[in-house]
């Protein structure tokens, strides 16, 4: 349906463009701009659809590129790396113009991404980096993010401020790139601050129920716990529930794509703070990189661009109605 709609829109656009150019003064970049997107295909291969990040990126890319006549194809491996590799392999033989890929880990797609570039396809990586650098990377700087979070924990919980200095970390899956890099950043900071004590560092497998059980036990063991930082807001809903049930004053610092649900939770007091890599902004970055690649037409793999996303630390104080974003149907 959407594709049909896109085609109709593109056709309408093309028609109006034609009509307009006949009358007005020509903008010399205009025709080449639209020409460079004609009949182009962009394939999006996320880790899985159905989560706010990937839905947000998909929506952003679509709204930016579909009006230009670009076909967007989405392959959904549903959190299955092997299926993702299969999808990527078949995409390489189908030869879209650009592949936007969301890596499940640093390695699994590395060799396939190189093959894709060799086959003449531009590859843009989103948010999770592969060991192999491609034309562009758009996403959070996780090591830097870890450092910032670590520093934030120090600021919040330092005994100098009268706090206990006890903090806990709830990771997602231990082996995910986001987890590894962030932990590296957090550890770098905490190593410089021996007064901050990491009392629990557990993985909850991105599962809210597990996160809740871990948090409940940790709080119960350390009633003076100062802060918990979790690696995904969806999972930290469980952590928040555990904190609420315990009745203790534990600061919950979470992170995520900044979906409206996050702001709602901050407003409701479930989360105290969230580190947000703005998903619509990332989507715009992706779309811009794609536009650039399609216009400049460099040799695939020749240009290695990195666009780190600006991070925002949202709290109830600095939040307003426009801070978070919503999906079209939300």
């Amino acid at each position: 349906m959407r594709r049909i709609k896109a085609i109709i829109m593109a056709a309408a656009l093309a028609a109006t463009t034609g009509a307009v150019t006949a009358q007005d003064i020509e903008d010399p970049t205009r025709a080449p701009y639209y020409d460079s997107f004609k009949d182009k295909t962009v394939a999006f291969l996320p880790v899985s659809m159905g989560i706010d990040l990937t839905e947000g990126w998909a929506a952003g890319i679509k709204s930016a590129l579909e009006p230009l006549g670009v076909t967007i194809e989405i392959r959904d491996p549903n959190f299955n790396t092997a299926a993702g590799a299969q999808a990527l392999t078949s995409l390489i033989s189908e030869k879209p113009d650009v592949i936007v890929v969301h890596n499940p880990d640093v390695q699994s797609y590395a060799r396939l991404l190189r093959r894709a570039e060799e086959a003449g396809i531009y590859v843009v990586q989103v948010n999770m980096r592969s060991a192999y650098s491609t034309d562009a990377f758009v996403g959070a700087d996780y090591v830097g993010m870890g450092r910032q979070i670590g520093q934030r924990l120090v600021d919040l919980c330092s005994p100098d401020n009268g706090k206990s200095g006890k903090v806990a970390v709830t990771q997602g899956v231990l082996t995910a790139a986001a987890s590894i890099y962030q932990m590296k950043g957090i550890n770098e900071v905490l190593n410089d601050h021996p007064e901050i004590q990491l009392v629990s560092n557990q993985a909850a497998d991105w599962d809210a129920t597990k996160a809740k059980n871990i948090a409940a036990t940790v709080i119960q063991q350390h009633p003076d716990l100062c802060a918990i930082t979790g690696f995904w807001d969806v999972m930290d809903v469980g952590t928040a529930a555990a904190i609420k049930e315990s009745g203790q004053d534990v600061y919950l610092l979470t992170q995520g794509g900044g979906n409206q649900a996050t702001c709602d939770a901050i407003a409701a007091g479930s989360f105290d703070e969230s580190v947000v890599y703005n998903v619509p902004g990332q989507a715009r970055d992706i779309a811009n990189i794609i536009k650039q690649l399609l216009q400049l037409k460099p040799e695939p793999g020749a240009m290695k661009t990195t666009l780190f996303t600006q991070l925002e630390f949202i709290t109830a104080d600095n939040m307003d109605s426009g801070t978070c974003w919503k999906l079209p149907g939300q």
Binding site: W206, A208, T209, K212, G238
Partner: peptide, 16 residues
């Protein structure tokens, strides 16, 4: 009980 205790339901647990 799950949904109530974490104020949400993650359908992904079907695949866990």
């Amino acid at each position: 009980v799950t949904a109530a205790s974490v104020a949400s339901m993650n359908v992904r647990i079907s695949n866990s």
